[in-house]
């Protein structure tokens, strides 16, 4: 009922057509292969160790040691500088908090550049963790602000300056949305990123209400003589293209008891940093005594980054 024609003849027709089809298929495969040609320009291939590297929290101390040595080797090959890459752990009984004095900040952006130098951020394309927004007096509507101001000198009359960086939230939307747990909050309150685990989906960037996260759209470039060789795994180790990064309260400094680079460089003393669990700390005093507020409180992120006024 199906084959009206004798099966042999039908088969021979289909065989001829099949041969023609196979030739066409071969041409198609060749075209696809030709399409892949740009991959030849792919630089250093990803090593097997790097490809199979486990998540930060799964690495045993000896694994971590191997990883750190491997990264040191990679950095040396790429930048000609032998770095110290370490994995600093959070201290017990410490929860970091940042407080920023809006009365004093003059918008000089020294913090922005100190941060870039300290944390080995890409110079081209320029990646900066801190964005200072020039706001006209009388409003907190961010849309009225200007992040790209460039007058002869600052501060300008009629404006105040509002530096924004990662707020290290207690209820961070960014870590919640990450599909692979490549970003999480550490016990000392710092939200970190495992750059070697991030898949680069940028969901955290979409989730962040503070525009704190930065993505490496291309391979970062840093002049060799500007590399900061004191590196930490979760902090300022040089990143590669395709992963997310952001402010981590200078983990390589703060976890050994130093201040973040942005604070040290600030000429006006607008930036205060410390352990909120210590009632005698400067930040504890500020939070108790000053008029403090957090940005976008209504989104419920509970930032560890506070703004305050002196008067």
């Amino acid at each position: 009922m199906i084959a009206n024609r004798p099966p042999e003849s039908r088969d021979s027709i289909s065989r001829r057509s099949f041969l023609r089809g196979s030739t066409a298929a071969a041409a198609g495969v060749a075209a696809m292969a030709a399409g892949l040609a740009p991959l030849r320009k792919l630089g250093e291939a990803i090593s097997v160790d790097e490809f199979l590297q486990q998540h930060y929290k799964e690495l045993k101390p000896e694994d971590m040691d191997k990883v750190l040595r491997r990264i040191e080797g990679e950095v040396e090959r790429q930048y000609g500088v032998r770095p110290h890459v370490r994995d600093y752990k959070p201290m017990n009984g410490v929860e970091y908090v940042y407080a920023l004095n809006l009365t004093r900040c003059v918008g000089c952006r020294k913090c922005v550049h100190a941060c870039v130098a300290e944390n080995n951020q890409s110079r081209d394309p320029a990646i900066q963790y801190i964005q200072v927004i020039k706001m006209p007096n009388g409003t907190f509507d961010m849309e009225k602000g200007d992040a790209h101001y460039a007058p002869e000198s600052v501060p300008e009359k009629g404006f105040f300056y509002m530096p924004v960086q990662c707020h290290q939230c207690k209820n961070p939307p960014c870590t919640k949305v990450c599909p692979v747990k490549a970003t999480w909050t550490e016990p000392d309150g710092i939200t970190v990123i495992d750059y070697n685990w991030c898949i680069g989906c940028r969901y955290c960037e979409a989730a962040c209400p503070y525009f704190a996260r930065r993505f490496n759209f291309s391979e970062p470039t840093i002049p060799k003589d500007q590399i900061n060789p004191e590196m930490s795994y979760l902090g300022n180790q040089p990143r590669h293209k395709g992963v997310m990064e952001k402010c981590h309260f200078c983990i390589q400094r703060t976890r050994v008891g130093r201040y973040p680079a942005c604070l040290e460089v600030c000429p006006t003393g607008s930036r205060k940093f410390g352990n909120i669990l210590d009632p005698n700390s400067e930040v504890a005093h500020i939070l108790r005594e000053k008029r403090v507020f957090v940005l976008k409180e209504e989104v419920g992120t509970l930032p560890r980054f506070f703004y305050y006024f002196d008067v």
Binding site: F51, K176, V177, C178, P179, V180, A182, C198, G200, V243
Partner: peptide, 24 residues
């Protein structure tokens, strides 16, 4: 994806799957 070769991080039980936290 910025890092397509790390897709295996998304495979449940093999990578580190943020379920049920992440909508992705």
């Amino acid at each position: 994806l910025g890092r397509p070769e790390r897709f295996w991080h998304l495979i449940p039980f093999v990578g580190k799957f943020n379920f049920p936290g992440s909508m992705l």
